[in-house]
Simulated scan of single mutants.
Amino acid sequence: MTSVLRYAAFTLDPAGGNPAGVVLDARGLDDDTMQAIAADVGYSETAFLTEEATDVQPVRYFSPKAEVPFCGHATVATAVAIAERNGPGEIVFSTAAGLVPVMVDDDLRATLTSVEPHVEEAGDIQDVLKLLGWSAEELNPELPPRIAYAGARHLVLSTATRQRLADLEYDFDGLTAYMLERDLTTLQLVWRESPTVFHVRDPFPVGGVVEDPATGAAAAAFGAYLRELGLAQPAITLHQGDDLGRPSLITVELRPDDSRVRVSGNAVPITAPA
């Protein structure tokens, strides 16, 4: 029987953060089996280590509905799970998006370094605004829509008010179709509290999940987005999951000498399925 560990990522509280499944030994499991395990676990992603540990550790990620190229919170959870057994240090994961180094410190706080990010124009967003029940007038013109990538593609939309972000209700099937057509993993919905503090929400219908409580891949993409707009800060704090009752805290680091984005957070075991 396959052993599935459960961790909450980007939190120190098992009742907070984003739950992730972790299978430390997925050798011999085929795609259908991994997909079935992820569906049974029911979290937004479950990570599978598919080969015996070497200097580079292959990993695959499955949502309840499909495989995804990269998942930040499951990467953090997996790195912490390994560090709890082998001690702190660096782990390099080989993902479908590329190599992702993760450093776990003595406090079991993990920092992943994204693949090379990029940002592109979003094009016409009237359809997605309609699916969200938003209007163009409710957006923040200082943070224009973009598609940002740091291992997976995310459409960034910024609201002018915290209340608009809190009142999230959308057409699940319609948004699923919209995102699949554009190869989007989540929407990164944002409200700016200050130049270094943002509140975010991430609908994830393509994974069979209404919303992620913490999204490390989108956090990395958002860091690239801010740099592209000339709004980079050395450290940026993202609050996510508050509106779901699963508060998460994500730190994004942007270094002037490296275009890649670093995303940091804690992860703690969940003793029973959440």
Score class of each variant (00 low, 15 high):
residue 169 E to Y: 07
residue 46 T to N: 04
residue 11 T to K: 07
residue 224 A to L: 04
residue 203 P to Y: 03
residue 97 A to F: 09
residue 74 A to L: 08
residue 262 R to H: 12
residue 174 G to L: 09
residue 165 L to N: 01
residue 95 T to L: 09
residue 41 V to D: 09
residue 23 V to R: 02
residue 107 D to A: 14
residue 176 T to V: 01
residue 81 A to G: 08
residue 239 H to P: 04
residue 109 R to I: 12
residue 100 V to Q: 05
residue 117 P to C: 05
residue 153 R to Q: 11
residue 263 V to G: 04
residue 193 E to C: 08
residue 75 T to P: 04
residue 47 A to C: 11
residue 109 R to M: 10
residue 74 A to G: 02
residue 141 P to E: 03
residue 76 V to W: 12
residue 123 G to H: 09
residue 95 T to W: 05
residue 40 D to T: 11
residue 114 S to R: 00
residue 266 N to E: 10
residue 34 M to C: 14
residue 110 A to T: 01
residue 219 A to S: 15
residue 258 D to N: 14
residue 154 H to E: 07
residue 18 N to E: 11
residue 133 G to E: 12
residue 228 E to L: 01
residue 271 T to W: 11
residue 268 V to P: 01
residue 123 G to Q: 10
residue 80 V to Q: 06
residue 175 L to I: 06
residue 171 D to V: 04
residue 171 D to S: 04
residue 95 T to Y: 04
residue 101 P to A: 08
residue 18 N to P: 12
residue 266 N to R: 11
residue 183 D to W: 12
residue 96 A to K: 15
residue 133 G to A: 10
residue 30 D to T: 14
residue 42 G to L: 02
residue 115 V to A: 05
residue 16 G to H: 05
residue 263 V to S: 06
residue 50 T to S: 13
residue 273 P to C: 03
residue 265 G to L: 02
residue 224 A to K: 00
residue 47 A to E: 11
residue 5 L to Y: 08
residue 150 A to P: 00
residue 265 G to K: 02
residue 206 V to W: 00
residue 67 E to M: 05
residue 197 V to I: 14
residue 53 A to M: 13
residue 9 A to K: 01
residue 5 L to C: 06
residue 52 E to Q: 14
residue 131 L to A: 06
residue 24 L to Y: 14
residue 25 D to M: 09
residue 126 Q to K: 14
residue 65 K to L: 15
residue 157 L to C: 02
residue 194 S to H: 08
residue 86 N to Y: 10
residue 131 L to G: 04
residue 104 V to C: 08
residue 213 P to W: 06
residue 130 K to W: 07
residue 240 Q to F: 06
residue 24 L to N: 12
residue 115 V to W: 03
residue 181 E to M: 14
residue 263 V to C: 09
residue 223 G to L: 06
residue 160 A to K: 12
residue 268 V to H: 02
residue 248 S to N: 07
residue 218 A to W: 04
residue 71 C to P: 01
residue 36 A to S: 15
residue 217 A to E: 08
residue 30 D to E: 14
residue 246 R to T: 10
residue 266 N to S: 15
residue 71 C to E: 02
residue 161 T to E: 12
residue 260 R to P: 07
residue 208 G to M: 02
residue 159 T to K: 03
residue 225 Y to W: 08
residue 116 E to Y: 02
residue 170 Y to M: 10
residue 224 A to T: 04
residue 27 R to T: 15
residue 257 D to G: 05
residue 159 T to S: 13
residue 135 S to P: 01
residue 57 Q to L: 15
residue 118 H to I: 01
